[in-house]
Design a protein around this nucleic acid. Structure first.
Lengths: 137, 137
DNA sequence: CTACCTCCTGTAGCCACTACAGGAGCAAGC
DNA sequence: GCTTGCTCCTGTAGTGGCTACAGGAGGTAG
């Protein structure tokens, strides 16, 4: 059994975040030592690592909770997982496309902006009518 | 002069968000009508639109505030603006790269995941040791 | 004069943490 | 046994950038 510091090291989840996950019921409450300290088994640490990996993949906590409950079942409802993963993939792709458009807009704005110019063409363009509407979302 | 609803329409900033910007001191407090309603000039609406455009470009509010104060000055410190824009560009590019790596990781995970399979290989991979560490940030 | 719309203030919620404050457990060295 | 210093505990508040009420008042069209 490991204290929260070791569990944090092994799972890659911040100590404060582990306690947060426990408070929110995202992971089950671990046992305690005589002195009141949390004690984690290897299985519980594996669960924390699982949560971190899903989080690193950009899944929201609500989805991760569903994943966790699916891993508890013997039949792991692969179809459901695949559907959620593909939905998430779509969101990531959309985000990338948005960011690329955003980067291009910003590039074309700042291109005309030379050091030392008194009136900044970028700020001017943002102040004037007719530029850059319809970029968001 | 326009009420907050018209200002919202013309600037593309949500009414609640306009009041929020005012509370936070991001835009100056507008005048009021006899009945206590906010009244916006075209200039104030232009400022709101400027904030929205910067926000659409993904700039954080703190940077937008700097931009706003720079637009107040006659010499618009173009070098400063360019530096902040380029810094922001770097952040956007990093975000895109991260998302692309994330998308690829998710793709390779879900590829093996066929509908109807009992034990989901994606969940398995996330549970096991040795996968997907070092993806985040 | 009534119905309805827009506006007002103030507060709380969202997500996923992060950062304290103020105290207690615990191991190693003297 | 005592000190030092690390890790841990609880509880609360803050982050960013809004968004969503609740409960009431101003203003307008018919």
């Amino acid at each position: 059994m490991f204290t929260i510091g070791k569990a944090s090291e092994q799972s890659g989840v911040n100590i404060e975040t582990i306690r947060y996950y426990e408070r929110e019921g995202i992971v089950p409450k671990p046992g305690r030592s005589a002195g009141g300290r949390r004690l984690y088994s290897s299985d519980e640490i594996a669960k924390l690592r699982f949560v971190r990996r899903c989080r690193d993949l950009g899944f929201p906590i609500s989805i991760i909770q569903t994943f966790l409950s699916l891993t508890e079942q013997s039949d792991r409802s692969c179809g459901e997982v695949k559907a959620m993963a593909e939905n998430h993939l779509g969101e990531i792709t959309a985000k990338i496309e948005n960011l690329v458009r955003l980067r291009d807009a910003l590039l074309s704005l700042s291109k005309n902006c030379e050091d030392g110019t008194a009136a900044c063409p970028m700020l001017d363009a943002l102040m004037k009518d007719g530029f850059g509407d319809g970029l968001q979302e």
